[in-house]
């Protein structure tokens, strides 16, 4: 056989085998819970299956907190005091606009129409125009089923792409290495009402050894905003559907743009377009407020908007308990809805 043909045949066989082996490894180990397969224990905690379960039996819950991990510190107990309604925090990691809708629909099905108030934590990057849906959505089939068909297809495609992802492959191998070891101590946990505890950080704060470090989130947010040039029309349409469905159910929605530490904001501002994106989001939210009287929005990107302390964070992106309390107070009239 011609040496070039032999070369190409060998190349194709080795490449195909290597890619298939990587995909099978990641499917079987499933370290990030992207897939329904559960042959091995997951390496990371996946909030979507947890929230799906919590919302499947939420009858009697009247107030819901929806958002990303940046809204997980909003306390349902405080919301209950402010509204008089039983509250639940149903925020999921890295929530995009489609996650808002999935969570709302799960609540509509599971709470039997008892929800009357929604607090919606809106991350600017929830409207990323080039980043697809979170691949972890497909790991929770009941959650995935709540999405509109195009989003379902996109999330399935995202999870399929992740079958070959470097990061997941590394974590799969790590998972295999850790099979014989005891599970590491979790660094965070949820209360029954969905309120998040950062176990390690809270312990450090209690004994006075906690030191705020924003550098990790500076890097994370720079990469999260990479390629983000305009708000996604598709995701804005999903938010509109969210508001239409809440309007038809008579649910009041209080939205806020989630805060970031000044270090992260400064880093993002050093990239072209961040302020323009923020203005674009605020303009869109203002339009939606005019169109949907049951919806108000409040730009809390900067701590000064709700009177928080500059360092009132656990890291560069997640506000501490005191700041969360101020934010909720702000949403319920202490500082008024007038802040735009």
């Amino acid at each position: 056989m011609d040496p070039a043909r032999r070369y190409l045949r060998t190349f194709a066989v080795v490449l195909g085998t290597a890619l298939l082996a990587i995909a099978l490894l990641n499917w079987a180990v499933n370290p990030y819970s992207y897939y329904p397969s559960a042959w091995l224990r997951p390496l990371t905690w996946s909030t979507r299956p947890l929230r799906t379960e919590a919302l499947s039996g939420c009858r009697g819950v009247g107030a819901l907190i929806i958002g990303s991990s940046r809204s997980m510190k909003l306390a349902p107990a405080q919301l209950q005091r402010l509204t008089g309604l039983r509250a639940l925090n149903a925020s999921v990691d890295s929530a995009m606009a489609e996650d808002f809708l999935a969570l709302l629909r799960l609540a509509r099905a599971g709470c039997g129409g008892s929800v009357k108030e929604v607090v919606l934590g809106i991350d600017l990057e929830a409207f990323h125009d080039t980043q697809g849906p979170d691949g972890r959505i497909t790991g929770a089939p009941a959650y995935w089923a709540q999405l509109p068909l195009p989003e379902r297809l996109r999330s399935a495609a995202a999870a399929t792409e992740k079958l070959l992802a470097w990061e997941q492959t590394v974590q799969s191998l790590r998972s295999l290495r850790m099979l014989r070891e005891p599970l590491p101590t979790p660094t965070s946990r949820f209360d029954d009402d969905g309120f998040l505890h950062y176990v390690a950080w809270e312990a450090q704060k209690a004994d006075g050894t906690f030191k705020l470090d924003t550098s990790g989130q500076v890097q994370a947010y720079l990469s999260r905003f990479a390629g983000f040039k305009h708000l996604s029309h598709r995701r804005l349409a999903v938010l509109r559907t969210f508001l239409e469905e809440t309007a038809s159910d008579g649910v009041r929605v209080r939205g806020f743009v989630t805060p970031l530490h000044a270090d992260v904001l400064a880093a993002l501002r050093s990239q072209r377009g961040f302020d323009a994106l923020r203005s674009e989001l605020n303009a869109q939210l203002a339009d939606l407020q005019r169109e949907f009287p049951h919806f108000t929005a409040f730009d809390a990107s900067e701590v000064s908007a709700y009177g928080g302390a500059p360092d009132g964070f656990w890291d560069g992106a997640h506000v501490d308990d005191e700041s969360s309390a101020l934010l909720l107070d702000g949403l319920y009239g202490r500082r008024g809805d007038a802040v735009q």
């Binding site: 040496p3 190409l8 060998t10 190349f11 080795v14 992740k162 070959l164 470097w166 990061e167 990479a226």
Partner: peptide
């Protein structure tokens, strides 16, 4: 143009493909 080179190139390509998971 030898088989061993084809194997190495294919493995390098597979590694590069796994690194493509973050759009850049």
């Amino acid at each position: 143009v030898r088989r061993v080179v084809a194997v190495l190139m294919a493995l390098a390509f597979a590694i590069a493909i796994t690194r493509m998971s973050v759009p850049s």
